[in-house]
Computed example of a mutant assay.
Amino acid sequence: MHAGGPRELVLRCTAERLRIEVSDGNPEPPRRRRSAGDGAGGHGLIVLQRLSRSWGTAPSGDPRGGKTVWVEVPCPPDPWGPWKAWGAQGPPTARGRSEARSGAS
């Protein structure tokens, strides 16, 4: 790896966003690298910029030095949100339809 490998990976999730933090021992900020021509590298910052809501770098809190690169991406809506209050079986109307089908067999 060009930065000597990550020292730490931190994931922070809220209902609105996922923040990913990767710390390494290299104090240099990330920069675009030329692709090797075989498509095998140099795309990390492009992907990060296109997929993220925001991103940045900060000095690492590690006494050995280094940096932390962070990125924030929006979290998709919770598809089970409306059903959570009813538990695994869903709301009473869904249970009634399910029971009617199983009783008709």
Rank of each mutant, 00 (worst) to 15 (best):
69 V>S: 08
51 L>M: 08
21 E>H: 04
31 R>S: 11
85 A>S: 01
72 E>M: 10
70 W>R: 05
99 E>I: 09
96 G>W: 12
58 A>Y: 10
34 R>K: 09
30 P>G: 04
58 A>N: 09
12 R>G: 12
62 D>L: 12
63 P>V: 04
38 D>W: 07
97 R>S: 07
76 P>Y: 02
56 G>Q: 14
85 A>W: 01
9 L>A: 11
69 V>E: 05
37 G>P: 06
10 V>G: 02
19 R>S: 12
68 T>L: 10
45 L>W: 00
78 D>T: 00
19 R>A: 11
67 K>E: 08
28 E>W: 07
34 R>N: 10
18 L>K: 04
77 P>M: 02
76 P>K: 01
24 D>Y: 02
98 S>P: 02
95 R>C: 00
62 D>S: 09
37 G>K: 05
55 W>V: 06
18 L>I: 09
14 T>I: 04
21 E>C: 10
83 W>V: 09
103 G>V: 03
57 T>P: 09
36 A>Y: 10
52 S>H: 01
49 Q>S: 15
57 T>Y: 12
68 T>A: 08
15 A>F: 05
67 K>R: 15
82 P>V: 00
21 E>M: 15
1 M>K: 10
45 L>F: 03
47 V>C: 14
89 Q>E: 15
48 L>M: 14
58 A>E: 15
6 P>W: 08
72 E>S: 10
89 Q>R: 15
100 A>W: 09
54 S>H: 05
98 S>H: 12
18 L>T: 11
4 G>P: 02
56 G>I: 05
25 G>D: 08
3 A>T: 13
19 R>Y: 06
95 R>K: 02
32 R>V: 14
64 R>I: 02
32 R>Q: 10
99 E>K: 11
2 H>Y: 11
26 N>L: 13
57 T>H: 15
85 A>T: 05
17 R>C: 13
100 A>I: 04
71 V>E: 03
95 R>M: 02
73 V>M: 00
101 R>A: 12
94 A>I: 07
57 T>A: 15
6 P>K: 10
3 A>N: 09
83 W>R: 09
29 P>Y: 05
94 A>M: 08
29 P>T: 06
41 G>M: 04
42 G>K: 03
97 R>V: 08
39 G>R: 02
4 G>T: 04
85 A>M: 06
69 V>D: 07
49 Q>K: 15
87 G>N: 01
68 T>C: 13
99 E>P: 06
35 S>Q: 03
93 T>D: 13
63 P>R: 01
33 R>K: 07
8 E>I: 07
43 H>F: 13
27 P>T: 03
93 T>N: 09
24 D>V: 03
93 T>Y: 07
24 D>N: 15
33 R>A: 12
